[in-house]
């Protein structure tokens, strides 16, 4: 007798344990599960099983998720390597959505529709071990995403070479917000659908490298004098609001 038969038998017999609404609720749960598409179901099942086992299930709002990701940022200005962590049970698309919402609410200096997905590959790289297909990723676990900035014209060259190019021009890599957001975009790129449709990041990147001078805002395509490119970001250091969110 399989598990489903056990439940239906208990319902039929009206046993004390599974009598009445409890067994009906269980049957309803399984009926609903049957109507969920496979790819969605496999993603959601882990949470459902945890709930049934009575394990801690944390309900998180979009803002909480965004804050967790923002807090997890690390950035090495010299090497251009930054990381952030997507919390467990949050998909890349969800991460992208909440980040966009967060940036819109907290960083009005950012210009909407600023970055084109087609330009992302030129200035970000995801680690090789990170599956390019969203379906291959394990969303039930928190996962750290590492982003490596790429300097225009130096793709494929050693990191030290790329860093030297910037150094010779008195530049450093862009701040973590740009890098992390770019990584979130890139992480979603291979999902098979246009996840950018309603996103903040869409538009045109005139150049390949995204970097900032040591003293002013973000520049693009060789510009390092601030907000004179199509891409406009908050200038100067990351705002206290952002850091303390």
């Amino acid at each position: 007798m399989n598990a489903f038969q056990v439940i239906t038998k208990q319902v039929a017999e009206g046993t004390e344990r599974a009598a009445g609404f409890l067994a009906k609720a269980a049957a309803s749960l399984i009926t609903k599960a049957e109507s969920i598409p496979l790819d969605e179901m496999s993603r959601r099942l882990d949470g459902a099983l945890r709930a049934l086992r009575g394990e801690e299930v944390v309900k998180k709002t979009a803002l909480q998720i965004a804050r967790e990701m923002v807090r997890s940022y690390t950035f090495d200005r010299e090497t251009g390597v930054s990381t952030f962590t997507v919390p467990a049970s949050v998909t890349d698309v969800e991460a992208m959505t909440v980040l966009n919402q967060y940036f819109r609410n907290n960083l009005p200096g950012f210009k909407r529709d600023a970055v084109n997905a087609a330009g992302i590959e030129w200035f970000t790289k995801l680690p090789q071990e990170y599956p390019t297909s969203c379906q291959e990723r394990d969303y039930s676990q928190a996962r750290q995403i590492t982003i490596t900035g790429v300097v225009r014209g130096t793709r494929g060259q050693a990191r030290t070479t790329q860093a030297d190019v910037l150094k010779n021009e008195s530049l450093v890599f862009a701040d973590p917000r740009d890098q992390a957001l770019a990584a979130a975009i890139h992480a979603c790129k291979h999902h098979g659908e246009d996840v950018f449709k309603h996103m903040w990041v869409r538009g045109c990147v005139p150049g390949f490298a995204l970097y900032t001078s040591r003293s002013s805002g973000v520049g693009i395509n060789g510009s390092h004098s601030g907000n004179d490119g199509d891409y406009v970001a908050a200038s100067g250091s990351p705002s206290p609001d952002f850091k303390n969110a």
């Binding site: 399989n2 598990a3 489903f4 056990v6 439940i7 208990q10 344990r17 599974a18 609404f21 409890l22 067994a23 609720a25 269980a26 309803s28 749960l29 399984i30 609903k32 599960a33 099942l45 949470g47 459902a48 099983l49 709930a51 049934l52 086992r53 009575g54 299930v57």
Partner: peptide
């Protein structure tokens, strides 16, 4: 089937109250 197994296990658990069982099922749902 995995879901059914977990539900069956929960329904048969002696150390979980009926109220708690319903709460977990609703949350899973």
């Amino acid at each position: 089937e995995m879901l059914c197994v977990e539900v069956a296990r929960l329904l048969c658990a002696d150390d979980v109250s009926e109220e708690e069982k319903l709460s977990r099922i609703k949350l899973a749902e």
